[in-house]
Design a protein around this nucleic acid. Sequence first.
DNA 1: ACCACGACCTGCACGC
DNA 2: TGCGTGCAGGTCGTGG
Length: 295
Amino acid sequence: MPGASTLAALRPMPELPEVETTLRGIASHAVGRTVSEVRVHEHRLRWPIPTDLPERLIGRKLVRLDRRSKYLLFRLRQVRPVSSDREGTLLVHLGMTGSLRWYSADAALPARRTHDHVDIRFDDDGVLRYHDPRRFGAILWLDDPADEHPLLAKLGPEPFTPEFNARYLQQALASRSTAIKLALMNNAVVVGVGNIYANEALFRAGIRPTRASNRISRARLERLVEAVRQTLSEAIAKGGSTLRDYVDSSGEPGYFQLDYFAYGRAGLPCRVCGRMLREARLGGRATVFCTGCQR
DNA sequence: ACCACGACCTGCACGC
DNA sequence: TGCGTGCAGGTCGTGG
């Protein structure tokens, strides 16, 4: 068990693996259910939760649950009072401290705690509860086609699709002299890479976070693409890194965490070469790297 | 067109 | 002990 200060330094946030883990946890319970009740206790998130959210959701059946970038997209189709092809999308973003937890009907729903902002009840009496201390998250209703919504329209490729490859990256970065770490975290370049995984992927790829984006060889971009995928997929496989605030959809405090090479390790010896890891600030974010392993 | 940075928000660690 | 300060971080919006 690491000391308390170490834990604090390693407090992960809902990055893509955590969002993916949440999706998988919820989908098995909620898909196919119809919304029966919606309670909004606090509407002040990043944007106000629409006041008509209950009437939008009630009587609609969750037909699919998708993820685009770090957005969870609940596809809902009208079934009551009359069935129709009307479909809409509930968009949920966890911000930095948000979590969604499913409470099955088998047990009594626990009393609301501080920062429990929304309850969505389904026809089997299961409840999806949104919790978000810092309220950086978002809950919005999108009329279809949701993909044309401004929040989704200009997003870059998903890291696991074939579109995200070294050729694409080289072209996307060709006109950018900005630091590669900032480019990686730019959602127009590729989605789903936040601060933690940007640090880790760059370490694994052997690329200095401050390096100019358009000064990286194709071969090294190949390595970067692989590093991004490996870092994310390892984290997903481990159930998402878990942090103080983040709880997965069943409420288990995740004890899974990537063995970080860089993130949160400034001043500690590099696990590969032993040199002391350096810290810089890039775009206001903690940036950790090894002067020996990363060029 | 591009880029840097402020703002949003709470909880926690830290120093005086 | 208690208080003030800074940091954590996703991402939109703004100003350069």
